[in-house]
Design a protein around this nucleic acid. Structure first.
Lengths: 196, 196
DNA sequence: CGACCCCTACCGACCAGTCGGTACGTTGAG
DNA sequence: CTCAACGTACCGACTGGTCGGTAGGGGTCG
């Protein structure tokens, strides 16, 4: 059963994510949030403890979701090449579905206090470790080249910049495909058949 | 001859780039800028027209520099594979030398007014067009796979995220090498010997 | 030489406006 | 009657920016 409160709260979350993505956290005043949601301050603060807590909640959502889906991928018994491709398409789908929240997640880390930073950083590391794990697995299995894994930090950047800057003109599945078209043969040792 | 004024102005520029990179434009107050530079408001505004003009100047610097160096690379008569590698190492070197300014350039676009946006966007497109040009050249010459170029927007993200998040633990040349280790075979059709 | 002057670099008080946040009143459904 | 879900009025702190003023170095005169 969906209460009215939860509904209002959800509206606040999505509207804020949208504004924060477009103008940044500090660039978005309370007033803008309020008339985007259609509330006054009193109503707003009935649902939200503080602006910064709101930010943290927005940022936790996308990373928590993808921790679940990537976990399922890792649990598969396919080879590393397959898992790698799945990790990529999964990330692309996630960003396509929640681009605003992902943008905020990847841009506003520095705004958070020590608590929020710790929570976000831990999950971020967890997620990137999934990639590192698959990369390692593929390397020892002889599927992948022996790689210096420093670039893994950049994968999130590769995706988000492609999605943010190329979105208007191109459907999301094509963006993911374009990225994976480079990433797969860049990582895999033997020629990889491109699906489709 | 280097005047005192130019020196002070330069100090303002670098200090501001540093603070903007760490805390964001809106997250950095005038007060913080002032005691980072060691000036009072009067002195500050003697050199800078406005905070936003300051931001624009910070952002124009890295892109203008790399437009020059990438132009020189394009003018070379090497093959596309060589040019591609040079574009990558050039970008890596630029970011390593000016990480703060690059961070600001890639994060604070939305803060700018219509004028600033136009100036930055034009240069950004110019630079990415260099990559597209080389990619196209290599594709028609049979050096590269036939690629969907949507991912090109993500190259900047790939680099900046790698440099920002992996910097502390790794020297910049290694970061560039790690990235190019993936990018080159991801783009080039035939196996590419890795230098060094 | 010294007296004058001007201009650059800088100071610090001040401004209107905006910030995030709170206290409390009101409304309406169960 | 109750309590959640809001609106309204207000707060102090802080925002970017302005303005009148000043210290002092360098040039130009007699």
């Amino acid at each position: 059963m969906r209460t009215r409160s939860e509904d209002t709260r959800a509206r606040i979350l999505t509207a804020s994510a949208d504004l924060f993505a477009r103008q940044g956290y500090h660039g978005t005043g309370l007033a803008e949030l309020l008339d985007a949601v259609g509330l006054q301050k009193g109503g707003f603060y009935h649902h939200i403890a503080s602006k910064e807590e709101l930010l943290l909640e927005i940022m936790l959502d996308p990373i928590d979701r993808i921790l679940v889906s990537s976990d399922q991928i890792l649990a598969t018994d396919g080879d590393a090449t397959t898992k790698l491709r799945q990790l990529g398409t999964d990330l692309g789908n996630a960003m396509a579905a929640d681009l605003a929240a992902w943008t905020v997640f990847l841009r506003e880390y520095s705004v958070l206090g020590a608590d929020g930073k710790a929570q976000i950083l831990q999950r971020r590391q967890q997620y990137l470790d999934r990639w590192r794990q698959v990369l390692q697995e593929g390397a020892t299995a002889g599927e992948f080249r022996p790689l210096d894994l420093a670039f893994v930090e950049g994968i999130l950047g590769l995706f988000i910049y492609t999605f943010v800057w190329a979105r208007a003109s191109t459907p999301p599945e094509e963006l993911t495909r374009s990225i994976m078209q480079v990433l797969m043969p860049g990582i895999c040792l033997h020629p990889v058949p491109q699906p489709r």
